[in-house]
Design a binder for these strands. Structure first.
Length: 476
DNA sequence: ATGGATGATTCAGG
DNA sequence: CCTGAATCATCCAT
């Protein structure tokens, strides 16, 4: 992508073209000399200010002119300018010019260059499109972030991998900058070179026949040459972007374990919503915020967790116990806090904000206790005999051969409720929830191994989200 | 070095 | 579009 290469290539090509012309000129000169002037067979237009009687002088004149033309490039600029001026003013100049015109017409040189109008290069178009799509070419602002956003969407999440993102963006911007500076340089060089060549040709058109069309053709040649170099630039830019992209995507795949705290928060939510571990979008966002991860990472986590939990419930039992206990404790704390809160508040003016959350909280706390106790009892010898509640019946019905502990959970629930009732019995408003709540089903796992009520995301924010922010107080 | 844990990705189904 | 399931790729304790 070097500018010098570009110029060198262009110059080479142009030099080659010029050489061609020079050779043609030379041969024309030769023909001219051999066929006409020197042999004296062809009448020349009358040179001005000369009667043309002196044949030797004329020969000398032509030889002199040709010699000057041939050696003009070997001279210094000033010398050349002077000679050029001299040549232009030479009395034989119009004669030579007309001869050149004639010969040119005869040899059909002027017709050359009819094959213009090259169709747009498909590869160039591809590169252009790609650069546009990657945000390297095109409008200044939106492009780069668009590509980054696309990549972000692939990995999911808005503030996703912000470090890697900014890194990616920075590198892309860098590529973009280099690309644009180089492009500008090329364009500038192209224009300069074109102007230069055009001036040169216009100048030369005084001494030899050059039609505007030929100048145009030359400009076309230059532009094609430059655009082929531009294509190289675009190609290598594309490559750079692709490499960056692939690196970025690779980096995306790199796995970093979540922090312990994040895992705890997620687990708490999972086990406290075991009957329907499908956090709503809001809950996901909340969790994401708390865990300093993205929403899609939360989704991933829950997706993996559900699968893995379901695959091997036994393995997760201990974990479930742990988190359920935690949740229950938190719930109890929350209840105590609620009691205090409600006592503090005037009975006639209850805390409306808290009341709003009341039902949700009831569900959650009930569920927490459910989980806690079920886990406690399922882990034990099973000596805990229970009344055959409706839940029990339900859960037995829904069980398949995979023996889901939820059965025991269901069986235990009613007694759990009784056992735990005293824990929060002082809490006004919660008795009804515990006594009458029909949510004490075995965690919603149905016969198909799916969670009942799956696909109907629980809009319940975990107790953690409650007004007292219970979990955040105790999770450490 | 190895195997289990875990986060991410892919793909098919609803 | 969301989910479950399978799978990949990496981490991490041993």
């Amino acid at each position: 992508m070097s500018f010098s290469i570009c110029v060198a290539q262009c110059t080479d090509s142009l030099a080659a073209t010029m050489d061609d012309q020079a050779r043609i000129m030379q041969s024309i000169g030769g023909v001219s000399l051999a066929g006409h002037s020197v042999q004296g067979g062809m009448p020349l237009p009358p040179p001005h200010g000369h009667d043309g009687t002196d044949g030797d002088g004329r020969k000398q004149d032509i030889g002199d002119i040709l010699h000057q033309i041939m050696t003009i490039t070997d001279q210094s600029l000033d010398e050349a300018q002077a000679k050029k001026h001299g040549l232009n003013c030479h009395r034989m100049k119009p004669a030579l010019f007309s001869v050149l015109c004639e010969i040119k017409e005869k040899t059909g040189l002027s017709i050359r260059g009819a094959q213009e109008e090259d169709p747009p290069d498909p590869q160039l178009m591809r590169l252009d499109n790609m650069l546009l799509a990657e945000g390297v070419a095109g409008p200044e602002k939106g492009g780069g972030s668009a590509a980054a956003a696309a990549a972000a969407a692939a990995s999911g999440g808005a503030a996703d991998n912000s470090i890697e993102h900014s890194d990616y963006r920075a590198k892309l911007t860098q590529i973009r900058q280099i690309y644009h500076t180089e492009l500008e340089k090329y364009e500038q060089a192209c224009n300069e070179f074109t102007t230069h060549v055009m001036n040169l040709l216009r100048e030369q058109s005084r001494t030899r026949p050059i039609s505007p069309k030929e100048i145009e053709r030359m400009v076309g040649i230059i532009h094609r040459k430059f655009s082929s170099i531009q294509m190289q630039l675009k190609q290598s830019t594309c490559e750079a972007v692709m490499i960056l992209r692939s690196r970025f995507l690779d980096a995306r795949r790199k796995r970093r374990n979540f922090s312990k705290q994040a895992t705890e928060i997620l687990n708490e939510y999972f086990y406290s919503h075991l009957s329907n571990p499908y956090p709503s979008e809001e809950a996901k966002e909340e969790l994401a915020k708390k865990c300093s991860i993205t929403v899609s990472q939360v989704s991933n986590w829950f997706g993996n967790k559900r699968i893995r939990y379901k695959k091997n419930i036994g393995k997760f039992q201990e974990e479930a116990n742990l988190y359920a206990a935690k949740t229950a404790v938190n719930a109890a704390h929350a209840a105590a806090a609620a009691v205090q809160n409600s006592q503090a508040n005037s009975p006639t003016t209850p805390n409306s904000g808290f009341q709003m959350k009341d039902e949700e909280f009831q569900l959650d706390s009930a569920e927490s206790k459910n989980t806690l106790l079920s886990n406690m009892f399922t882990g034990s010898s099973g000596s805990f005999s229970l009344p055959n509640t409706g839940d029990m019946f339900l859960s037995m019905q829904s069980l398949n051969g995979e023996s889901y502990q939820g059965a025991q959970v269901g069986a235990n629930v009613q007694s759990q409720v009784d056992t735990l009732r005293h824990v929060i019995s002082q809490t006004a408003g919660y008795n009804d929830a515990l006594a009458g709540n029909t949510m004490y089903s075995p965690h919603g796992l149905n016969a198909n191994g799916g969670w009942q009520g799956a696909r109907t995301p629980c809009s319940v924010i975990s107790p953690t989200e409650g007004p007292g922010s219970v979990h955040s107080d105790t999770s450490n």
